Amino acid sequence: MPLSPHRRRFARIAAVLILTAALVGGAVSATAHTSKHQSLRGLKILLTNDDSMQDARPNQSDGRGLYEIRKALCAVGADVVVIAPWSVQSGRGTAVTNSGTMQVGTKELGAKYVNDCKDAPSKGLVFGLCVDIAPCSATSPGATPSDTVKFATRGGLHDLANWEGEPDLVVSGSNSGNNVANSVTDSGTVGATIAAIEDDIPAVAFSSASNAAGVFPDSNYAATAEWGARFLIGLRSEGLLKQSKFALNVNYPNIDDDKKAKKAVWASISDGMFAFHYYTRQPDGSYAVAIKLCSGLPTCEVTRPDADKVWVIDKNHITVVPINWDRTYAHSVDGKRELAKVKSFVEKKAPRP
């Protein structure tokens, strides 16, 4: 018997209610199933960089990115402790200090960042490591990024933060400027991650682009940090945040100047030089050292189609590059299975910017 209009309307409402209940129930079930993977809760992270922890320069190139990363990691539940160079150590690569005395310094955090980690077990402690026989001062040279990792994991974290054992992860950055091409070799930001994986500790480096004026705006640092936290959560959910066969070098493009970041790509270190050092003789016989973007020289030309320099600088994509400690040419790669899984994650599941 055909249903009356009233009954047909009632049937439609009932069907909608049943479907809604099923969808809500499924969503609740899915949430219950994945909730433990939606944060970095329980993860102990050592945070360092090569820009220092000072955050005092007008162009924000001396540690502002570190505090944005600290904020983002604490916001998703990580227990973060910062042990970074006391003064800027950009370009120090994997250099280490072999003798002398190191001191641990602190600074008062500005109102913008002071409460970011108040609910974390270690409260987001921030320390700077200098090489000096006296307490760290304005003229104290900083320990290198590699120094900070070695110091932290060989007693420093125990003494300063009461941590037992090694951190679960070393995060380095966010650097002021992209680390691509030959800058990867120079980079202390990347160097810190090499020190970590040499001790079998997983590590990820993050770098943020400047804007067209050569300034490092909060927007670029904040975007790198927010995406970076989601990226780490994704890796953790896939069981990929425990491997230490290789580190990951992540570069985030400029989103200032009305630009937008594009999806992450799996890239390689560019064969075209990015940073070009030059030396100018002075009247007194000394040489002034400077650095500029490489252009107009054969050594600047890029031939690799997956070059990080092209993808992040020219095309505005986020780039992810695996970095290994082993410099043996043509040596068989250890961790091929992990490499394939991380590459697949980046290409298919990495968060959108």
Rank of each mutant, 00 (worst) to 15 (best):
K36L: 06
S187R: 04
L125G: 04
N324V: 12
I18L: 15
K263N: 14
Y252K: 02
D314N: 14
Y279S: 14
K292I: 08
A27T: 12
R57H: 12
K259G: 08
W163M: 15
T280K: 15
D168G: 09
Y287I: 03
S176F: 06
D308Q: 09
V180D: 01
T20W: 14
P85G: 04
P141C: 08
D147M: 05
I313V: 15
T34D: 14
S210K: 11
V76C: 09
V346S: 01
G156R: 05
F276K: 13
P305K: 12
L23R: 11
Q243P: 03
H33P: 00
G156W: 02
V289H: 13
G296R: 09
D55K: 12
G234Y: 04
L240Y: 11
I313A: 08
L157N: 03
K292F: 00
V149L: 03
S39T: 15
D186S: 13
Y287V: 08
K315M: 10
A209V: 04
K36W: 07
K112N: 10
I18V: 15
V180T: 10
T224N: 13
G214L: 09
I83D: 01
S286I: 10
D326M: 03
P322R: 02
T193M: 12
A290G: 12
L125I: 01
Q38C: 02
A247E: 02
P85S: 04
A195S: 15
E347P: 10
E166P: 08
I83V: 15
S286Y: 10
D314F: 05
V170P: 00
A14V: 13
L232M: 10
K309Y: 13
I318K: 01
I69Q: 06
H331R: 13
M1H: 13
A138M: 12
A111C: 03
D200N: 15
T139I: 11
D55Y: 15
T185F: 11
S210T: 08
W266Y: 14
L293I: 10
T189V: 10
K336Q: 13
G177E: 01
E338Q: 14
P135V: 06
L232Q: 03
S99K: 13
W86N: 01
T303L: 07
Q282K: 12
A32K: 11
R281N: 11
R12W: 12
T20P: 01
V81C: 05
S183Q: 10
K336P: 00
N98T: 14
R304N: 12
T97V: 10
A203Y: 00
W325N: 07
G156I: 05
S187K: 03
G124R: 01
A290V: 06
I269P: 00
P202D: 06
G239W: 14
G142Y: 03
S172H: 05
A192W: 00
Y113R: 06
T144E: 03
D256Y: 09
R92A: 09
P85A: 07
I255N: 01
I13P: 00
D334P: 02
C136F: 09
A84V: 03
G42N: 07
D62S: 09
W325L: 00
A95R: 12
E164Y: 11
N316M: 08
R57W: 06
G188N: 04
R230P: 00
S208N: 01
A203Q: 04
P305G: 05
V114A: 15
L23F: 14
A138V: 12
D271C: 12
S219F: 03
A307W: 00
G296F: 07
A330Y: 11
S237E: 11
A181G: 02
